[in-house]
Each structure stands twice: as C-alpha cells, then as structure tokens.
C-alpha cells in the first residue's frame, strides 16, 4: 500500500495558556509550544502498522511555513519513509478548501492507495479530509477507529455517538480521517529524531504543484477568521480562592448543600 498521511503543526493545548496579543487580533504566539496535531500521530501509527503487514511506503505531507518541517521529521522518526513540505507565501490564510486544494495537487503527483488525515486539528473543524476526498472523487469515511485492509476494498469502523461503531466497506483509493484511540502511537525519542535530521525534505510551492495561487491562501478563502476573543469570564464559574484549606472548607459546604456528601 502506498499511503499519504496529512499532518499539521499546531499549538499544543496541554502545554499552553492562550493569551491574545496586544492588538487582540491574534494569539500571542511568541511563547507558544507547538507539536503535531494529536489525531495525526494516530494516523501515522496506523499507516506504519498497515505497511508493516502489507508492505508499501508512507509519505507525510504538511502545508505550512519553514517551521512545519519539524513535524514532518518527527513523523519520519516514527516510521514514515518520506516527507513533503508544501510552502509558499501564497498559501498563507488558506481556509480548509485551500488546504484541501493543495493536498489534492500533491496527491495527484503520486500513486496513493490510501490517504489518511486526523479527525480534526487545532481549529476544531474536521473539514480537510472530507473536502479532499470530494475534490478527488474518492470515497471517504470520517472518525475511523478500525481498519481491516483487503484487496481493492477495505473494511473500516467509524466511531459514532455513544461509542458505537459503524462498520463500512470502502473502495480504494480512499480518504479516511482517523480518530484517537485507534491504536497507541509509538514514542519518539531524541535519537529517532536525530537519525532523520539529515534527510532531505522537498519543499513545493504553487508553481511546483501547478496550483493557481489565486485559488488558495487569503485570496481564495471564502471563510476567514477576523479575530480571536475570549468570552466574558463573568458568566462562568464561581471561583473559590484562598489557601487550600479555605478552599476545601468552602467546597465542602457547597457539596453538603447540594446533597453530595
């Protein structure tokens, strides 16, 4: 199987307290810790397991700036064979459709049987996989938590409400978005990263991909983020303060009043 896995470099929600910048129109990005989108690690791990069983190779691709290269290297340290960075000033400000347009162009340079994305990334959209599939006219299944490879067709489980699993048969080539929990992604140590540090990663711009720069980036985006804001904290929880003993005392009173003790 030839597998393409789409990965994205995102701010790590577990490692950051998000603040707005002074103008209030963007996050304060200076001290943000970035990592690979959580869902994408599961997608790469699944690709590795499939190739271990059936042979083939794995390419990881990302649309991003120079710094996005680090996530490709991380996934190559995990076990992906090749990396491709799609990067061009003209790609900046792309909406989901723009990203999918670029990924489609990359897909068409190869001969992939299977294309994997994460179920969603930092923007909580869950859009790129489904768009890419529709553009390619490939079948698609989202939130996949089981893959049973076969000849020409594969069986996939989709996680639906309540943790139930919807089993489907899907023709190859296809696009699948991968849900967390499908496997346990392997750990990547510093040594693994070092081993791939010297590997050449091709960078492709609009010209290389044959994509009209006006159809992607800010120019092509139909959906645009205007600003970030943090909702008024006034309508939130009653915050208990003081030292820990005081907090516990107040909490216990409240729990008693609510019948919880």
């Amino acid at each position: 199987m030839e597998i393409l896995v789409c990965v994205k470099r995102v701010p790590d929600t577990a490692e950051n307290e998000f603040e707005l910048n002074a103008e209030g129109n963007d996050l304060d990005r200076d001290d943000l810790v970035y990592s690979v989108n959580e869902w994408d690690n599961y997608a790469v791990e699944e690709a590795i397991r499939i190739v271990d069983n059936l042979g083939g190779s794995i390419t990881v691709v990302t649309v991003g700036d120079d710094e996005a290269e680090e996530v490709l290297r991380r996934e190559m340290a995990m076990g992906a064979n090749n990396g491709v960075l799609l990067s061009d000033d003209a790609f900046e400000g792309s909406d989901g459709r723009g990203i999918a347009t670029l990924l489609k162009a990359e897909v068409e340079t190869g001969n992939y049987d299977l294309i994997l994305t994460g179920a969603q990334a930092d923007e909580g959209a869950g859009q790129v996989g489904g768009m890419l599939a529709a553009m390619l006219d490939y079948p698609y299944a989202s939130l996949v938590n089981k893959i049973e490879p076969g000849e020409g067709k594969i069986k996939v489980g989709r996680e639906i409400e309540g943790g139930n699993q919807e089993m489907n048969e899907i023709e190859l080539p296809c696009v699948l978005s991968i849900q967390t929990g499908i496997n346990e992604p392997r750990y990547v140590g510093i040594r693994g990263i070092r081993k791939v540090a010297g590997v050449e990663i091709p960078v492709k711009g609009a010209g290389d991909l044959g994509v009209d720069a006006g159809s992607v980036g800010e120019a092509g985006a139909k959906t645009k983020r205007v600003d970030y804001f943090v909702p008024d904290p006034g309508d939130g929880a009653e915050m208990l303060d003081g030292d820990t003993d005081e907090i516990i005392e107040k909490l216990i009173e409240k729990l008693k009043a609510k019948g919880g003790l």
């Binding site: 909406d95 989901g96 459709r97 869950g126 768009m131 989202s142 939130l143 409400e161």
Partner: peptide, 23 residues
Amino acid sequence: HDTFGMDLAPGLSIKLDSAYAAD
C-alpha cells in the same frame, strides 16, 4: 456538527461549490 455531520458536510460543501464553516 456530530459524527454524521462531520462525515457529510465538508464534502457536500465541495460538491455544492459553497463556503464551509464547521461547529
């Protein structure tokens, strides 16, 4: 925006050549 909507809507926006906004 549930497990069915996530399956349907992004591709539908492409086929209708419409803008898309999720969740």
